[in-house]
């Protein structure tokens, strides 16, 4: 029997009830938001449950939403049940001032580098990670470049107006780098 989104949702609600919010099913991919401190509990349940069996971590990444107050940073997990070929997306939000998320490395060893990359670019503090160091950027870097306040172009330049190409200055105010 194929594992349907309704069934996954029912089982999760039976287990966690109201704690899971922001259910979404865009393009057929079931998505839910969990409280930050519950990310491991939810993933462990998805992993252990005999029917759900989400035992493959496809992807782990971060998103920065400067407009979401007190939950500016988001970790996105894409899980896959390879037996029933079902996918699932889990999100947890944490405040920018204290971006603490439990590491998924105990469950999935593959999360190790994915979390390092996410730390490297967004500054999440993955609690319990065996080696939370920068992976793609230089070690000396002292900011997290994928956050929206860091614009791509040099903010001091005045000769280049690319309002017409891609994003102009609308998404984030230039950082004062003095």
């Amino acid at each position: 029997m194929a594992l349907t989104n309704e069934h996954i949702k029912d089982r999760l609600i039976a287990k966690f009830g109201e704690q899971l919010t922001e259910w979404d099913e865009q393009f057929g991919l079931l998505t839910v938001k969990a409280p930050a401190e519950m990310n491991l509990k939810v993933m462990q349940f998805l992993y252990d449950d005999e029917e759900l069996r989400f035992r493959f971590l496809t992807d782990l990444t971060g998103v920065h939403y400067p407009d979401r107050k007190d939950e500016e940073l988001c970790v996105v997990y894409h899980l896959h049940n390879l037996v029933d070929n079902a996918r699932f997306r889990l999100k947890v939000y944490v405040p920018e001032v204290k971006p603490d998320v439990f590491t998924a490395t105990q469950l999935f060893k593959g999360a190790n580098w994915m979390e390092r990359e996410t730390y490297d670019f967004f500054g999440f503090n993955f609690l319990g990670h065996p080696n939370l160091t920068r992976i793609l950027n230089v070690d000396e870097m002292d900011y997290f470049p994928m956050r929206k306040q860091y614009t791509l172009e040099d903010p001091k330049r005045t000769d280049k107006d690319d309002e017409m190409f891609g994003r102009g200055g609308t998404i984030a105010a230039p950082v004062n780098q003095d």
Binding site: R134, I135, L152, G166
Partner: peptide
């Protein structure tokens, strides 16, 4: 050790059509 040719495509993509 990796990252020698990191080119920040994900960041660049946020400013490109």
């Amino acid at each position: 050790t990796i990252g020698y040719i990191h080119r920040a495509f994900e960041k660049i993509a946020e400013r490109r059509p």
